[in-house]
Design a protein around this nucleic acid. Sequence first.
DNA 1: AAGAACTCCTGTTGGC
DNA 2: TGCCAACAGGAGTTCT
Length: 294
Amino acid sequence: MPELPEVETIKRGLEPALVDARFENVVQRRPDLRFPFPENFTARLRGRRVKALSRRSKYLLANLEGEEVLVMHLGMSGRFTIESCEKPGTKPGTFAHATSANPRHDHIVFHMSHGGTVTYNDPRRFGFMLLLNEKDLPRHRMFRTLGPEPLSNAFNALTLAAKAAGKNVDLKTFLMDQRVVAGLGNIYICEALHQSGLSPRRQAACLVRKSGKPTDRAERLVHAIRDVLTKAIVAGGSSLRDYRQADGALGYFQHTFATYGRDGKNCERDNCSGTIRRIIQAGRSSFYCPRCQH
DNA sequence: AAGAACTCCTGTTGGC
DNA sequence: TGCCAACAGGAGTTCT
């Protein structure tokens, strides 16, 4: 499920449950997800304090006491649930059955020192967890090649155009490549392409001029990516408030899409009477309006 | 060496 | 109702 805005939302939601708490006990219900869990995973976490949570691309990072980082990737179907988090403003013990997810896919349970519990559930098991030294993280093969954070200054029309030069792929596939820009996925690429009026079928090279300078399309695309992500994070934040008051399940964003999943529906862009279409690119669905995206 | 195809896994949905 | 195919928010590995 999660793309950058969801991981950011999850990070914020988990902060009160994890930051400044210690792992009292960690229950590991299976040897692997997508990859094997780290050697002695539970023993290495036990007793350790979480200094901070952060995010890089779609990775959720827990910086631990002792200069280690717990790296968590949620794959397609990973989710976290918080239970019995006794923090100011929450009622202890009210989250007895916080999750509607099938408990047979509860693979990891973090029992924290303040009495709260954080459970990782992942039916498809495309997620994974790593335990790395802080200083090794940037050199790790999963981080080394990651492109810039789309909400940082390192991501701009200039750097995007540089990566598009000579590329013989369509824009959709280009943006799915995490080396180009980190954290985008199927949904937000479709949305950003719609907002910028660019067809997902257009070639990536349209972002760069012969001189190497970015085209106007590149400028528009960068702006749209930023805008779509920022709005989605805000929307995710609003659903967070529910989880604290309600059932403890960490909700995802409530967001309305212009294209994603709207195959056959009307394009709602002003003055556009097109119909959203679904096509397959690199084996994945793309949604776009052939009328206003070129 | 870039780009396409295949792979991991379970759950849900829609058509017959 | 059951059955089966298609599809799902990801990305590493293997092919051509």
